[in-house]
Structure formats: structure tokens, C-alpha cells
């Protein structure tokens, strides 16, 4: 039984009665493991403070290096897409909005979106500023949404060790699903070289009217239908293919509707993968891990360049308030 209601997974909602598979006329294969609890400890939390946000719980940050904001396919995947926010809140969110990272001294904020408002403790922060320090209890405002920033106190070593234990589960090159900045648990082994298609369930040709010319589902696939609605909506039914070519693992985009990224840069053809590379399917991030290679990719993850589109005309956000 599959249902589209991801609210159903939270305790205050009763399970849905209507099975979407019945209404579809075909069965979607939703792996419940794709929605399980995150396997890595959270390093910090963002607690929404706005009126109307009372029911949306804290947003856990499960990694030391994250892009936050709205996902917009012209730009790049984000680690935290704020899926519980309402339309008007997302409308004022940059794509991406900020880069949050942790160093020895603590957390840093880099503003990436000049058009969208960013404030720390109600003080305006611009992309022209140096990276700002973020302390526990600080109020971070992104667009029109206020969050309290709360580090959990989990040391980075513990997080790294937990991630190491996760990687130790596999003895072959594998793909690990990432969520909120860290590998969250689900993974798939790539095996001996048969190509693996990443995508979602779809009906066999002819199941629905006028679908005789649709493709057949691929033999080997990782079905990501079980992801949360906000994640899977940007994944194509046949999105990308990972294959071993001349001893080298490669990724090939298959969809013309949704983009595939490697290390947050959109790709248009087959490219080779290195261990530690980060594949982006729409807004969903997947880490390519090779057990016999180095943990981190030699190609650094790309943080988008700031482009100030407001040049030549007044910015749409209010100017910083003077204290």
C-alpha cells in the first residue's frame, strides 16, 4: 500500500484511508526505509519561530557543511530545502540562501543570495560581509522566516565516526542517500557493473491509455519513489544511469525534464565519478562511495557564485535597519 501523504508518518496524523495505488491503477514501489530516521547525529538545529510555524518541528542539520534555501533547478541542489514552509515563506527564500559550515571555532554563515533578506539577531547581513559567526541561541532570519540556531553539542569526531561506521557496511562501490547534510542511512551497492538506473516507479507501457510507447522499467534500478514528496517531486521516473565503463564508474543523465548534478554542477553528458563525489538528482543528493578509494573527492564541492541580479535597480528587500 502506498500513499502520498507524508504527513502520515508524523504521529499527529492518522494513517490515510485511501490507497493512491488503487486510484492510479498501477502500483508504486515505495521503500519505507527511505523515510527512516537519520542515522547520523544532528550537529545543530534550526527551530522555526514564526507564527504558524509552531507545528513544524526543528530542522536538524546532520552535517558540517550545508547549503540552505529553496531548490531551484537553474541553480543547484540544496542540503536543506525547508520543505515544511508555506508558499509565501518559500517565496522570500533564496535559491540557495546561505552556506552554513562548521570549523574548529564553531559555525559560520555565508550569504549567497543578495536578493533575499538574511539577518542574524535582527541585524541585516549581506553577501558583501565576511562570513558571520553563528552562536547557539542566535536568531537567524532567512527571508521572512525566523529560526533559533541551536547547536546540539555533538562533537564533529562523533559525527565522522558514525559516518565511517555507515560506510563500513559496504564492501563494494555504493551510493548513499544524503539528507540535511549527511548520509542518512539508505544505500545501494553498485555490484559487478550492470548499469543501475536511478528514478521512480512508473507503469509498464500500455497500463494507462496512450502509453504504448513508454519505455519498460530498467532491469536494475534504485527506486526512489519512497522519498518524501518534496524530495521526489524533482526526480524523473528514469533520471540517471550509473554504469562501469572501462573500469571507471560513470553517471549519465537520462531525463530532459530534471537535471542531474555532480558536486552541485549540472551535467549534460556522461561523466566519470570519483569516490566522495556528490550526485544531485533534482534536489536529492546521493554520495558515491568507493570503499577502496579516498573518503573525500579531489574535486571540491561547488558553492554557487553570488550573482546580484538587482544591479542597476533598487533591491526589492528593505535596506538594513539602523539601530
Amino acid at each position: 500500500m502506498t500513499t502520498g501523504q507524508d504527513e502520515a508518518s508524523s504521529p499527529q496524523h492518522k494513517p490515510p484511508t485511501i490507497d493512491l495505488d488503487v486510484l492510479r491503477g498501477w502500483r508504486e514501489d515505495r521503500d519505507p526505509a527511505l523515510r527512516w530516521r537519520h542515522q547520523l547525529p544532528a550537529l545543530a538545529q534550526l527551530i522555526p519561530l514564526g507564527p504558524g510555524d509552531e507545528n513544524s518541528g526543528p530542522i536538524d542539520l546532520h552535517g558540517p557543511d550545508l547549503l540552505l534555501g529553496r531548490f531551484q533547478s537553474h541553480y543547484a541542489p540544496v542540503d536543506v530545502g525547508f520543505r515544511q514552509l508555506r508558499d509565501h515563506q518559500l517565496y522570500r527564500m533564496g535559491a540557495p540562501h546561505v552556506h552554513l559550515s562548521q570549523d574548529e571555532q564553531g559555525w559560520l554563515v555565508e550569504v549567497l543570495s543578495p536578493q533575499a533578506k538574511t539577518m542574524i539577531n535582527d541585524r541585516m547581513v549581506s553577501h558583501l560581509h565576511d562570513d558571520q559567526r553563528l552562536e547557539g541561541g542566535d536568531i537567524l532570519t532567512l527571508g521572512v522566516t525566523r529560526f533559533e540556531f541551536r547547536p546540539t553539542g555533538v562533537p564533529l569526531e562523533r559525527w565522522t565516526a558514525a559516518r565511517g561506521r555507515l560506510f563500513e557496511r559496504v564492501a563494494e562501490p555504493s551510493l548513499f542517500l544524503k539528507r540535511h547534510g549527511g548520509c542518512c542511512g539508505p544505500f545501494i551497492g553498485l555490484g559487478e557493473g550492470a548499469p543501475l538506473t536511478l528514478g521512480r516507479s512508473f507503469p509498464r507501457p500500455g497500463t494507462l491509455p496512450h502509453t504504448d510507447r513508454w519505455p519498460l522499467p530498467d532491469e536494475r534500478r534504485w527506486d526512489l519513489s519512497g522519498l518524501f514528496d518534496e524530495e521526489r517531486k524533482h526526480i524523473s521516473f528514469r533520471h540517471a544511469r550509473v554504469a562501469l565503463k572501462k573500469g571507471q564508474w560513470t553517471i549519465e543523465p537520462l531525463s530532459s525534464r530534471h537535471r542531474t548534478f555532480v558536486n552541485r554542477i549540472g551535467i549534460s553528458g556522461t561523466i566519470a565519478l570519483q569516490s566522495g563525489d556528490e550526485i544531485g538528482l533534482g534536489s536529492v543528493l546521493i554520495r558515491f562511495h568507493h570503499p577502496h578509494r579516498s573518503l573525500e573527492s579531489s574535486r571540491p564541492r561547488h558553492v554557487p557564485t553570488v550573482v546580484d541580479w538587482s544591479e542597476g535597480r533598487p533591491p526589492s528587500t528593505p535596506t538594513p535597519e539602523k539601530k
Binding site: P203, W214, R238, S256, R257
Partner: peptide
């Protein structure tokens, strides 16, 4: 259904 159509008849 619309998304499927978009994907397979782009």
C-alpha cells in the same frame, strides 16, 4: 499522471 506525461513525452 501529468508528470509522467511530461517525462515520457517531453
Amino acid at each position: 499522471r501529468l508528470a509522467l506525461d511530461g517525462d515520457f513525452n517531453p
